[in-house]
Design a protein around this nucleic acid. Structure first.
Lengths: 273, 273
DNA sequence: GAACAAGATCCCAATATATGGGATCAGATG
DNA sequence: CATCTGATCCCATATATTGGGATCTTGTTC
């Protein structure tokens, strides 16, 4: 609907208009655009230009096109997405353990890593409850307000903790004030487990644990999420044990595999900025 | 290494060189290219051009770049890939059932649909065996030689079966001759289960079943794959029952959900050409 | 059953856009 | 400290992209 200027964006790199427009088409389709007209208005280009780019994307299997239904995301994205997921060794290693955990607890499970100032979701296991946790693999979530995010920064010093809390305030986060939040973080760090008792969203609670590689550095984290009706205090305590157990098993797998991380100062996964 | 001509390809659509080059970068990175020089030589462009495109892809989060490690596939691909997978309702619905099946049998499980003349892999569950089945989500496999492919075309008439066998011959397929293959297909169709007794690759066997939606049309299929040492005749017969059971459960879930497929003549998934 | 409508596809001259040679910069290596 | 590898930036040039409109296809209406 909004007509973005051709040479748009914030600090948009020039010299790639065509590529940028092509990617914009991908995202417009992901956002639900089905026909040419929709795409054209979404990026503010003419029908012919849009068609040419879309056709190229279809030909390369990045999009599908069916006369009746219009455009859809194509198999190539499936392939690249899957490869991107596998690129982080954590995902492969953690999967079976998380599946077992999912089977055992029935709640939604997320796996994620720290990407810059954000928590990036690498994997998601839906769980058996009715409720649907609204999150997507590949999405970024704030660090300070999610259980998973907090688990990711458990090892950082207080200066850096303040930084993350500050990021939250900038975005209108009013929830726990700095001191309360820091106190909780200290408690989480001491236990090696992070909770989220409806601090972020009402009704939603979760238990999260960090995953460490052979060097002991936190390279990822996972969380078990549910609504409060399935997550009273007692259950959270129970889960803490189960979760810690799963985390330990994953860490063991990461520590044993000799993929040779020559540079132990950097996270083993490929997403850090 | 091979320098593809800029305006390359077969019936390559013109008017999108920049976009096509950008996508080529994505694939080069997926194929393992890490640095600018590698990318540049992979697509036959100069450093500066390559750098500009790659930088745009990084900025859009389609690639990651870390000074030491070079380029990698980015989170945006993760997101789009995941969305593409979810676009086919079958994946969502089948997942939990396949996970249970995977848990029970320990073998590699694939889920796929028919895309034109190919079997497209939508999902893969690794299994607990040592062996790694070389297949990737998003990849296309021939229909006639894979168990999954055969399960997908169980409902088609013999003319169309011949068509698929013919496609195989064109690509140097010499395995079972037409009549033998047709006879097997008839048997598979009668049982509602397709086998692959090392017909495709030596040592590799699999048991596959079709998945039908509310209209009764085959919209997908899944297969349980393993090496012959885990797959003797007795086990294949056993598995047939388990597999059929899982298929029935998935079909039931597909039949019950009222997502309103107004057009029953077309497959419910979005991948058909 | 024929005219209509909606949408996709194709074509071509004008020009905004991408290109790549080379210069520069960052930081690793000896 | 000099050297090297590899990333980043700049700018005149050529060329690939653009978009207006004509055309074709397919489904809908009267």
């Amino acid at each position: 609907m909004a007509a973005k200027p051709s040479t748009g964006g914030e600090g948009a790199a020039p010299g790639s208009q065509t590529l940028l427009r092509g990617l914009a088409i991908l995202e417009a389709v992901a956002a639900g655009a089905r026909d040419l007209a929709g795409l054209a208005s979404a990026l503010g280009t003419t029908r012919s230009t849009t068609h040419r780019l879309a056709a190229a994307l279809v030909e390369q299997r990045y999009l599908t096109f069916a006369p009746r239904d219009g455009y859809g995301l194509g198999p190539k994205l499936l392939e690249l997405g899957f490869r991107a997921q596998q690129a982080a060794p954590v995902t492969r290693v953690a999967r079976p353990h998380l599946e077992r955990l999912s089977e055992a607890c029935g709640d939604t499970i997320h796996l994620g890593v720290l990407e810059g100032d954000w928590a990036l979701y690498l994997d998601k296991l839906p769980g058996r409850r009715r409720i649907e946790i609204s999150s997507r693999v590949g999405e970024r979530q704030p660090v300070w307000s999610t259980g998973l995010g907090k688990a990711l920064i458990l090892d950082l010093d207080e200066a850096r903790w303040r930084h993350f809390h500050h990021l939250g305030e900038a975005r209108g986060g009013h929830d726990p004030d700095l001191e309360t939040w820091l106190a909780r973080m200290r408690a989480y760090a001491a236990r090696g487990i992070a909770y989220d008792r409806e601090e972020n969203e009402p009704e939603v609670r979760c238990v999260a644990a960090p995953i460490r590689d052979a060097s002991g550095a936190i390279v990822a984290a996972f969380s078990v999420t549910s609504t409060v009706q399935y997550m009273d205090e007692v259950r959270m305590e129970d889960l803490a044990g189960t979760v810690r157990e799963a985390a330990r098993a994953i860490c063991r797998d990461l520590g044993w595999q000799d993929l040779g991380w020559q540079d132990l100062g950097r996270p083993a996964i490929g997403w850090a900025e």
